[in-house]
Design a protein around this nucleic acid. Structure first.
Lengths: 192, 192
DNA sequence: CTGTATACTTACCTGCAAGTAAGTAGGAAA
DNA sequence: TTTCCTACTTACTTGCAGGTAAGTATACAG
């Protein structure tokens, strides 16, 4: 079959959504297979066990963000649009039914994760921190942002804030997300 | 039996720990009953179903934090020790095998929650925000802290940061927690 | 037109999760 | 001393979870 029966991609899409809505232990194979009109065994065919699936989801997540951040990067020099790109990406994810982020979803089930998955997650976080650190550093040099201390630490704290905010938004509504972005801007000395 | 067979409290203790390690869907009745040397049905006796248990856990969490914050309050005027109390409390929780916070644990399983549990969680968050807002406002008036914008928004962002940081700490080790506290201090203009 | 690889389905298995109903041990009250 | 209440245990039930083995439809290669 060279026919593009994109079942694999559909499974990843559906599982990705479920993962970011309910976490690793919050969904089952049935929750994936039923809406897709396939059988559970079809999932096992593509991903022998659940950890294989999760590993694929982390890769997917990594690639999506990489693609998106490379779009921010295309803006060129200014740091501000890149930061705004991160906010927009976050907001967009939440609006697309992905209220929590991958790192947050995995943190809770951390003990269950295979080493492969842990490593993939770790790489993803390191990549994110690296990217944001650079944005912040650039922004400070260009005098777009003002903040005290080390850029890496600051970037970690911003990522932590966004991660926490996404979870809080679930309880308090999405409005607080924009409010948190505004606070991050304020803390970076951005006035507009 | 007036004898203090504190099974109920033991169940809450164990479930509380499990909840903050693995989340709502990450532990079973067996994980509670086995280490306690009782049967699953003993849990059902005290908490007819899982939501009743969870509701009790939120109450427990609320009371623990209330007790702890009232101890901070006893410091009297200065805001700084109260903020430090929050940091110490967080650090202590993590060191006692409770890596993630209740709000974070529930956010992932939010769709599963009963209305009662959602309400309890909501009250808890509102209480926390109220307390921290007051601390921040006091601190700003006393010129212990400097920050721009509304105290409530700032308090929300600090709570979000701590929540996110606890989850990240799971991946990157507990050291980043102290580092995040330091960043929060820096962002509040605290130098020492 | 035969063989082989891909992408599944059918039909199963094991195990555990939550939950229930009925029984029981041991005070406390009458 | 019986009776009742509390705090359980024993012995189930139902249902779904993840996972497997064997069969099948289709395409393409030679």
């Amino acid at each position: 079959m060279t026919t593009a029966s994109n079942t694999r991609e559909k499974i990843i899409d559906q599982a990705f959504k479920l993962m970011l809505q309910r976490g690793l232990n919050g969904f089952s194979y049935r929750d994936i297979s039923e809406p897709l009109g396939v059988k559970n065994a079809a999932i096992h065919y593509h991903f022998p066990n659940k950890m294989d699936l999760i590993a694929a989801l982390i890769d997917e997540n990594h690639q999506v963000l990489k693609k998106t951040t490379s779009e921010f990067m295309a803006y060129g020099g200014p740091a501000r649009p890149q930061l705004e790109g991160l906010f927009a990406f976050t907001m967009n994810q939440c609006q697309c039914g992905r209220p929590i982020c991958m790192v947050g979803a995995l943190a809770i089930d951390y003990d269950d994760l295979s080493d492969d998955v842990k490593d993939a997650n770790d790489r993803f976080m390191k990549d994110s921190i690296k990217w944001l650190s650079k944005v912040l550093e650039t922004g400070r040099e260009r005098e777009e942002f003002t903040f005290e201390g080390c850029a890496e630490r600051k970037s970690l704290s911003i990522l932590a804030t966004i991660q926490g905010a996404r979870q809080m938004a679930r309880v308090h509504g999405m409005d607080i997300l924009e409010s948190m972005f505004e606070q991050i801007r304020t803390d970076l000395g951005i006035k507009d």
